[in-house]
């Protein structure tokens, strides 16, 4: 199975997001509607007396849309909820090093909320934030295998210091896949699979096997679109991450 096969087979559960806030409907509801693959985004007002910071969103799964009522409000199983202030942070995420101590960044939690959702229009900054989340997990576990793909050699070169430290200060096995040739110096501790072929050039992939801990696995796959944004998906599911690793290895020419 190649990365293309893997990506095309992804099936996101039918999810609804309901934004609760005092009138008017907050702009974040529209952003979630256009930027994520969430099927339905609803808005339900909170009393006008409530402060706008009191707003929150609720993610539900498996709701059946009925024509006469808002689907999310009536059906579907609760998946997660988070305050709108924290949700907004994910749309403009801070990028921190994997070993940074600021581990309670709100965006990390929002990443969990939208885990296993196919996003339609992720930008590079958001993908970098998700990548850092997976790398941070790998850094904390300190063992296991981290696989990362790069569309261009220059992109790997720019990230080299991060991976040198990740590999050098842990027993992590770091594999980097590059679509291009790699004619630069070796990166200590990092196994480079250069000239890996067009599949690698099409996708942004990261996979961490959890180092034996199924609760710490993490995988990200995103495909660049014509407008420079990405369709993407990330998951903590150990089986899906293992399949992603297989697809990554199978895609190397």
């Amino acid at each position: 199975m190649t990365l293309s096969d893997y990506f095309d087979r992804l099936e996101a559960p039918a999810r609804t997001v309901t934004v609760y806030a005092p009138q008017p409907r907050p702009a974040i509801a529209d952003r979630i509607e256009t930027e994520t693959g969430v099927d339905t985004v609803d808005y339900r007002s909170l009393p006008a007396a409530a402060a706008t910071e009191e707003g929150f969103l609720v993610v539900r799964e498996g709701a059946e849309k009925r024509s006469d009522e808002p689907a999310s409000a009536e059906d579907g199983e609760f998946v997660a909820a988070i305050g709108l202030e924290a949700a907004r942070e994910f749309l403009e995420p801070p990028i921190v090093a994997p070993w940074a101590e600021t581990d309670d960044g709100a965006y990390r939690r929002v990443i969990e909320v939208f885990e296993a959702t196919v996003w339609q229009a992720l930008d590079r900054r958001q993908l970098l934030a998700i990548s850092r989340e997976i790398e941070t997990r790998a850094w904390r576990v300190g063992s296991g295998t981290l696989r990362v793909s790069f569309q261009r050699a220059a992109a790997l070169e720019a990230m080299a210091p991060v991976y040198v430290r990740l590999a050098g200060e842990s027993t992590l096995d770091v594999h980097a896949y590059v679509a291009d040739e790699w004619d630069r110096p070796a990166i200590p501790g990092v196994t480079i699979h250069a000239d890996a072929g067009p599949e690698i050039g099409t996708f942004w992939v990261l996979a961490f096997d959890g180092g034996g801990d199924e609760l710490r696995t993490g995988g990200l796959i995103a495909r660049e679109r014509a407008d420079g944004t990405f369709e993407g998906y990330w998951t903590d599911d150990a089986t899906l991450v293992a399949e992603l690793e297989d697809a990554l290895r199978d895609s190397v020419d």
Binding site: Y20, E53, E54, F56, R60, A80, A81, G83, V113
Partner: peptide
């Protein structure tokens, strides 16, 4: 859903099922 999420809206925690 509303009572749980609203009571935690300002602490940036993810509310789990």
């Amino acid at each position: 859903d509303v009572v749980t999420a609203w009571s935690h809206a300002d602490d940036s925690r993810v509310i789990e099922p």
